[in-house]
């Protein structure tokens, strides 16, 4: 569980962006998290209040968009969900190239 330290870093980056844009308030931040990223959305939400404590994000709404983990089968070329199919293509092959799913992105901030 390393989400708190990571979210503290996110808060710093948001504050910096907010300052650069002369914001008075950060209304909302949108994060994109891959299905197999090293952070778990549920925990990100749980630690968010602690990470924003005493910062300009104290009243900010957190929104998380999940990016599906997809892989391309190296045998038949089909793109499939790594999570629902447990890394096994419908053709039976377990060799794939990871396309998406490890993202952890600060997508946008909404300021006023």
């Amino acid at each position: 569980m390393h989400e708190l330290g990571i979210m503290i870093e996110v808060v710093k980056q948001v504050e910096e962006a907010a300052r650069e844009n002369q914001a008075e308030k950060v209304e909302k931040i949108v994060l994109q998290i891959g299905e197999i990223a090293s952070v778990i959305p549920h925990y990100v939400e749980a630690v968010f209040p602690a990470a924003v404590y005493n910062t300009m994000l104290e009243d900010t709404i957190l929104e998380i968009e999940i990016i599906p983990a997809n892989g391309r089968c190296l045998k038949c070329g089909k793109v499939f969900s790594l999570v629902t199919q447990n890394g096994i293509c419908t053709c039976g092959s377990e060799d794939f190239e990871e396309l998406t799913g490890r993202e952890f992105i600060l997508k946008e901030i909404q300021i006023s």
Partner: peptide, 12 residues
């Protein structure tokens, strides 16, 4: 003031 949306799109 109106809310502005700033696109960051930066990996954390």
């Amino acid at each position: 003031s109106a809310i502005r949306v700033i696109e960051i799109k930066k990996g954390i």
